[in-house]
């Protein structure tokens, strides 16, 4: 009896062991991405990218999923990942913390990113060119606390327009966690107004996930630089001379539409740290970085 249950227990562990991905070892090149949308698909989306990079770089490349923007930055800082697909703000933070790290690539349209303000139809708010002052006194949701398009830029515009902190402008302020969630919350009326990444909004409208009779676009922010790939400065030491350059080239020459759909971007162009100076400035201005 005893022997049988011991064997059974061992069997259970063998079973559990089977699907476990081989652990990341120190020699692997690892990257992550901020969980900005559709998190269930992250593994699938970035698994393909890992395969592509493995092939073009000649080393094993692994993708590690993380739960938050901060976790992505921390993993980068602690050298558990050497490359990351960051947002504007998380990228600035990461490069502040890791000396010598560089922004190497961004989406073709990422220098001109936008945030959309969306509102539930019960608010009666109409689309406008000027900042919609009518949102004052409503309930409002940002995206993730560490998001550029979901937090930093909308907060910046709200503070410039009203000269007050968001929690003084609105009846209630929330953080949905990510952009898809922001749309869902405004659509259900849990919040009346929200700020969302324009790419996520456009994609979800196109795929029919948004009920536009309930939630609609009311304002677009002026463009700002956002997403980018950032790499640690010490990768050359770890993976050999010119490795950073090689990674950059692989990213810039990525042209498989199926891969690019993961981001979703039409393709990548080169980026530099200074491209994100405006983001850093804005973050300092509203006190999100010291």
């Amino acid at each position: 009896m005893m022997v049988r249950s011991v064997l059974a227990a061992a069997g259970v562990f063998a079973l559990m062991q089977a699907p476990v991905a081989t652990p990341v070892v120190a020699a692997d090149f690892v990257f992550t991405a901020i969980p900005d949308q559709d998190e269930t698909q992250l593994r699938k989306r970035f698994g393909k990218v890992a395969k592509y990079l493995t092939k073009s770089l000649g080393v094993t490349v692994k993708y590690v999923p993380v739960k938050s923007y901060a976790a992505a930055v921390t993993a980068f800082r602690n050298n558990q990942v050497q490359l990351a697909w960051f947002g504007g703000l998380s990228g600035v933070r990461a490069r502040e913390l890791v000396k010598g790290s560089r922004a190497i690539a961004q989406g073709k349209k990422d220098p001109f990113f936008e945030t959309f303000f969306i509102a539930h139809k019960s608010t009666g708010l109409k689309p406008s060119k000027a900042f919609p002052k009518g949102i004052a006194g409503r309930t409002f949701t940002f995206g993730s606390k560490g998001s550029t398009s979901g937090r930093l830029m909308p907060e910046f515009h709200i503070r410039s327009a009203f000269g007050k902190l968001p929690n003084k402008v609105f009846k209630k302020v929330g953080f949905s966690g990510n952009h898809s969630r922001t749309i869902a919350l405004v659509q259900s009326g849990a919040y009346e107004v929200g700020a969302v990444n324009y790419k996520v909004w456009n994609r979800e409208v196109k795929s029919g996930k948004v009920d536009t009779s309930k939630v609609s676009l009311i304002w677009k922010t002026p463009p700002y630089p956002d997403y980018q790939w950032t790499i640690r400065g010490d990768v050359n030491k770890q993976f050999g001379k010119g490795f950073g350059k090689k990674v950059q080239n692989s990213l810039l020459t990525m042209n498989d539409p199926d891969l690019l759909k993961s981001f979703p971007r039409a393709g990548f162009i080169a980026a530099t740290n200074s491209d994100y100076a405006p983001i850093k400035e804005t973050a300092k201005k509203i006190g999100l970085i010291d």
Partner: peptide
């Protein structure tokens, strides 16, 4: 049902075995 005392050592060893300890972490962090 499954948490039987004699099986405890096996569970513990199994638990230690399946976790990916290989993740690099540095003392300097």
């Amino acid at each position: 049902i499954w948490m039987k005392r004699p099986l405890m050592p096996i569970y513990l060893i199994g638990a230690a075995a399946i976790l990916p300890w290989g993740v690099a972490f540095s003392f300097s962090n």
